[in-house]
């Protein structure tokens, strides 16, 4: 049976932030899980030290501290990746999670290290939208464990190189759609008057 939240060691670490063992269950928990489950958390973006999303119409963000011993983290990552053999893209070996544990490096942050911010009117800092964002983050990390690293260290890698097989439409100038680049002579079709 695979858990709905925290299916991997990486997601499970963050589940402890949403559901700390020591604290009594948060009464917002069922509602927050339901929001995440029912795709009410949209535009989820995960960058170093920050998670942003839109939850039921509210802009919500969570800020969190990066690892302070970046060098040690990099060393562990490099070692684990060397030993792991081929990995599917976006995945991380669970051995690395174990190595973090034995070196005393927390994958996730404790609840009080989170700085939630939400556009809703709720007075408590970790409102239902922020909590739902945390649950959506857990699911996203389960799907792509590598995000657990991106979240807590300075972006030191370039984003995925653009695929050579696809040209993003945003980079194409519609005015030069029919014209060979670098040629300036001749009538351009884009200048034609359009009649509707």
């Amino acid at each position: 049976m695979t858990a709905e939240f925290g299916a991997t060691a990486w997601g499970r670490a963050w589940l402890r932030t949403a559901e700390p063992v020591a604290a009594p269950p948060d009464r917002l928990r069922p509602k927050a899980r339901s929001l995440a489950r029912n795709h009410a958390v949209t535009s989820l973006t995960i960058t170093a030290g920050q998670v942003e999303a839109e939850v039921a119409g509210h802009r919500t963000s969570l800020r969190l501290p990066l690892w302070d011993d970046a060098e040690r983290v990099e060393r562990l990552v490099a070692k684990a990746l060397d030993n792991a053999g081929p990995l599917a893209p976006g995945d991380l070996p669970d051995d690395l999670a174990a190595a973090f544990r034995s070196e005393g490096i927390a994958i996730a942050v404790p609840p009080d290290a989170l700085t939630p911010d939400c556009a809703c009117a709720a007075r408590r800092p970790l409102c239902v939208h922020a909590l739902a964002t945390l649950y959506a983050l857990i699911q996203r990390i389960d799907e792509t464990p590598a995000l657990a690293l991106d979240l807590r260290r300075q972006a030191h890698q370039l984003p995925d190189p653009p695929s050579p097989d696809w040209t993003p439409m945003s980079t194409i100038n519609p005015a030069h759609f029919y014209k060979s680049p670098g040629e300036t002579n001749g009538p351009t079709t884009s200048a034609r008057t359009r009649v509707r």
Binding site: S163, P164, D165, W166, T167, P168, M169, S170, I172, H176, F177, Y178, K179, S180, P181, G182, E183
Partner: peptide
């Protein structure tokens, strides 16, 4: 490929965010 206008390879992907590149 460098001389190809977009019209020569304007086949969009499924979600309509990119077209096949001239090289491809």
């Amino acid at each position: 490929a460098a001389r190809m206008p977009p019209a020569a390879h304007a086949v969009p992907n499924d979600d309509g965010t990119a077209v096949m590149s001239a090289g491809a």
